[in-house]
Design a protein around this nucleic acid. Structure first.
Lengths: 147, 147
DNA sequence: AAAATTATATCATCAACTTATATAAATGTC
DNA sequence: GACATTTATATAAGTTGATGATATAATTTT
């Protein structure tokens, strides 16, 4: 609506490209545990909000009920989560993250921070400062995803 | 090695967190064509460097030979790529992207730019300017991935 | 010429996703 | 309260996407 099209459009296109590349880099980043995006995402969400219902996870993770049910079954098999009845609704179960599941997320997070640190080291102080001052904006962008 | 640990570490941790969230947002971003990461990545790589050998794609995409062979077989089935003999090596095939495959990548890219533009609109001019000045640094970060 | 390496196809298996179906519990309507 | 509708979740069947293993042909090395 606003005639900032020229400036916004140029920024966005370059930004989008850079971010796509960074996303690719991240996805392909080696990891101790070879877990899928959704697995990690579910565990991450549970590490923040455990316990949760399956229906809640379906909403946060944007995959089908069946996929979540099956993933939780596998995670339960591997000891990363537990199913418990929901006392407030006989149809539902509550998914609890186990200490083992939580430690997967913790170690994963630490590892990725270390890897990113390695990359950041290769930037100049000016480049780092620029990223630092953009960080609040990037953080805000990220929050839009939870809206 | 350098005693910038404090500043770098603080930045990196926050940056990493914001970055993880943004990555999640991007991965979960809805799309007209529901294609997997590796599918898109292969098509993207081919759109830049077609034709390529399977062995080259194995290296760029960081998955096994078997996975690439099978994926290319499916993409060929769907008309997005073509296999042709490599005249310089009787064992090899060259994978060419088709116009259809290229248009998948193009439309995907345009769509994502539009979606990101929508998000960027919600930032203030100051926030946008901060991201714009960080963009060269982010772009540099992204390039480390191709090293 | 034979051995070793390279390039790729295929098989078997499991994870991860989809749609479809089924069942039980909860809620809404009369 | 009886019945209809909705909700929550398990499961089946199928495809895709990944792995390791195996096989075959072409090329390179010895």
């Amino acid at each position: 609506m606003e005639p900032k099209t020229n400036l916004t459009e140029l920024n966005v296109s370059d930004f989008a490209m850079a971010f796509e590349e960074l996303t690719r880099l991240f996805i392909r980043m080696p990891s101790i545990e070879k877990l899928s995006f959704t697995t990690l995402s579910v565990l991450h969400t549970l590490s923040l909000r455990s316990p949760m219902r399956l229906s809640e996870l379906i909403a946060t993770e944007q995959v089908t009920q069946s996929a979540i049910t099956q993933l939780v079954t596998r995670l339960e098999r591997d000891g990363l989560v537990e199913r418990r009845p929901d006392p407030s609704d006989g149809r539902a179960v509550l998914i609890h993250i186990t200490p083992q599941g939580a430690s997967v997320i913790d170690s994963r997070r630490s590892e990725r921070i270390m890897r990113i640190a390695k990359l950041i080291e290769r930037l100049s102080p000016e480049e780092r400062a620029a990223i630092a001052s953009a960080l609040p904006a990037l953080t805000r962008l990220a929050e839009f995803g939870n809206a």
